[in-house]
Design a protein around this nucleic acid. Structure first.
Lengths: 196, 196
DNA sequence: GCTTTTTGTCAGTATATACTTACAAAATCT
DNA sequence: AGATTTTGTAAGTATATACTGACAAAAAGC
């Protein structure tokens, strides 16, 4: 027996590149050749780390959601200077929305495949994402003595807000300033839940 | 000279099928062979009606936006029984959202191509779509003596709402009832613009 | 040093798919 | 009827791309 495998470590190293590529090009346009090129390795090696292209995409989905929530967690652990977590996340997202290409991965998964496993992973990740936001909204409304009505729906609306901000940016229809206001103003409206 | 061409008519006939296919399968997975199969014609004939696959997609984009706005126009021309156009559109969308596959075409265009022409068409259509909604919102707020603040942003949020409702449906995360409430309740919040 | 396993390089294969060509049949005009 | 153009059918091509196999070099254990 000899030479311990560095597979898991290698996977961890390459995953950011792989995920960024999928986010940038989508599923079909991301060829395994292109992935190899960007990773600066041979195509072959990718197939030693993952069984097939689909597995690379699944790993990318999980990575991109993990990266986003991790960043948020870290943000929330810092000093909030009196603001609720929901307010701080909103402020952060108004500046950094779409940075991980999360929504682009979702688009790719939805539009380019009908693979049940991809759907399942997407569903699980997106569901967790929603829960995270919903919980922050609930906490916010409790903290500010607002009527806690249906934070679940509001959380979906917040996700929709981020999504449309990204689409607006990609199509050059909403500039940076407007996007900031979009997320800040409408986001505020959504987390407050319409006064009272 | 003989036999007048029925090209434009034929195009009009096939476009719904073409658009539905693109919406269903996305850009890459929609093969020209599959298009021909669904249109019940030979692949060849498609290429006599449009110069290439991209042109078919462009036509599909325009069709799907036209179909959506046309439906809405017709809806608004009917008797509204005292409700504002914005309220009626919301009520309609809470039942029929995503029917034309409009958002799916957008996803496909954004994620599967980086073609400038596709982007441009998408941008134009999406922009018009937004203007339409924004104008309804403005009218609504005027009619109900609400503060007319930034209906432009609210209109984007409404589009985001529809988008997330569709994603939620596709991933099986938001059932029909919740989607109806999502669009009705949050939509109401958005068109009113936070009271006053 | 020898064995074993991993790693890197290169070339190859099988298939899918956008798009074309060739040609016969049918329809419309004069 | 004859000329001309559009339609329908079938086969073909060239390329892109997911995935594989062969093999040498290097690293780790004995």
């Amino acid at each position: 027996m000899a030479r311990p495998s560095l597979k898991t470590q290698r996977r961890r190293e390459l995953l950011p590149v792989v995920a960024r590529t999928f986010a940038e090009l989508g599923y079909r346009r991301t060829t395994t050749a292109e992935l190899a090129r960007r990773c600066e390795i041979q195509e072959n090696i990718l197939y030693r780390l993952w069984p097939d292209k689909k597995a690379m995409f699944l790993a990318a989905i999980e990575y991109v959601f993990a990266a986003a929530t991790e960043t948020w967690q870290q943000l929330l652990e810092r000093d909030g200077r009196g603001r609720t977590p929901a307010e701080r996340l909103l402020a952060y997202e108004s500046q950094h929305h779409g940075e991980f290409g999360l929504y682009r991965i979702v688009f790719a998964g939805l539009s380019e495949t009908d693979d049940p496993e991809i759907r399942k992973t997407l569903r699980r990740m997106y569901g967790r994402f929603h829960e995270f936001i919903r919980d922050q909204l609930r906490a916010h409304r409790r903290a500010k003595c607002l009527r806690p009505a249906d934070a679940d729906l509001a959380a979906w609306a917040v996700i929709g807000l981020g999504t449309v901000a990204n689409i607006g940016r990609e199509l050059g229809l909403v500039n940076a300033n407007r996007r900031r206001r979009l997320i800040a103003c409408i986001g505020r409206l959504l987390i407050e839940g319409g006064g009272r």
